[in-house]
């Protein structure tokens, strides 16, 4: 059986309506109205041990509700959920002993105290033996380069340093399953790379299953073998990122540096089969579908009609593709 099995998970929340305006505020004193929000509307998936899966979707799509159910914090209204053979919320204590969770926007470290103190507290919380604790600590300190940070009070750490420590804190008990909720949010480029590298190594060398939710498409591209996209409480697409985006991102982009000034209308009239999306000075951006017009043919067309200084074919930026995908999926 797969490590995580989820079948037809459903969850609704009751939310109090709050309307703007003084009069409505008064009215709210007497009577409050509620709306039901269907956060999960029949979600099913399986994840095998050792996978590194990206979980995508716009805010409010049901990502964190799913994660909360998987980690045993929240009960679903309906559906089946088994993680490592357990029903998370029924055997919470045994379950959480084997999972790690990192929230990018929240800290689990004691703000005013040196990092090592928080680690030692976690040792006691998870009842780790001294030998195990020391072994794991040594390893994470080594790979995350924390040696110089352990004695520093958390409040003095930079965001990137702190995130490395958060990761370490979530791994001290050697979890088999790791949930990462926006682990790179707000980090500088270098820290992002360190975090990404670490997650990749952890997954490859220890076989830790990782579920990653993020809005950073570079994270997903760099790490995830497989992604699931959720919207309005349903899984709308799943598979390799490339396969999912191929449909919406069939098109490539051709950037041409022209020698001379032309109007948009003129260029459009001269280049059928490709769409001019942008003209910046002498730089023209075309989107085209390689299935309909092959790149050499398009380039030949253009160079026959214009003086061309330079040209470049690229994939569309991944963020644009995803937002287009969301649009196509109506989420």
């Amino acid at each position: 059986m797969a490590q995580i099995v989820v079948q037809d998970l459903r969850k609704a929340f009751k939310v109090a309506k709050r309307e703007a305006g003084l009069w409505n505020a008064f009215r709210g004193l007497v009577k409050r109205e509620y709306t039901h929000v269907q956060a999960l509307d029949g979600v099913s998936f399986e994840i095998e041990e050792g996978e590194l899966v990206g979980y995508l979707g716009p805010n409010g799509a049901g990502k964190s509700t799913t994660i909360k159910i998987l980690s045993g914090i929240l009960l679903p209204d309906e559906g089946i959920c088994q993680v490592m053979g357990r029903i998370p919320w029924q055997e919470r204590i045994d379950h959480v002993r084997e999972i790690g969770v990192v929230f990018g926007q929240r800290s689990q470290l004691w703000w005013d105290l040196p990092v090592i103190d928080s680690f030692e507290l976690l040792r006691d919380i998870y009842r780790l033996s001294s030998a195990d604790y020391r072994k794991t600590l040594e390893k994470v300190v080594d790979t995350l380069e924390l040696t110089d940070l352990l004695e520093v009070p958390v409040r003095q750490l930079s965001l990137g340093q702190r995130m490395r420590c958060e990761l370490a804190a979530s791994l001290l008990h050697n979890p088999k399953l790791l949930f990462l909720d926006e682990p790179t949010i707000g980090l500088d480029a270098v820290s992002k790379l360190v975090v990404r590298d670490f997650v990749k190594t952890l997954n490859e060398e220890q076989g830790t299953t990782v579920i990653l939710t993020t809005h950073d498409m570079d994270d997903i591209e760099a790490l995830c073998s497989r992604v699931m996209i959720i919207g309005r409480g349903k899984i709308l697409a799943r598979g390799k990122l490339k396969d999912i985006t191929r449909e919406v991102a069939r098109e490539r982009r051709l950037v041409v540096e022209l020698d001379g000034d032309y109007s948009k209308e003129y260029i459009r009239s001269q280049v059928p089969g490709a769409e001019l999306v942008k003209l910046e000075g002498k730089q023209a951006h075309f989107d085209f579908d390689p299935a309909r017009i092959s790149p050499p043919e398009l380039i030949a067309n253009i160079s026959a009609r214009f003086q061309v200084r330079d040209l470049l074919i690229e994939n569309q930026p991944i963020d644009e593709v995803i937002s287009r995908l969301y649009g196509e999926l109506h989420i």
Binding site: S71, I93, D94, V96, V101, R106, Q108, I125
Partner: peptide
């Protein structure tokens, strides 16, 4: 703030934490 979730994610009694 949602920080109570962290307490539920630990394998110890919630009251103690």
């Amino acid at each position: 703030s949602g920080d109570f979730d962290r307490i539920l994610l630990r394998p110890r009694s919630t009251a103690l934490q």
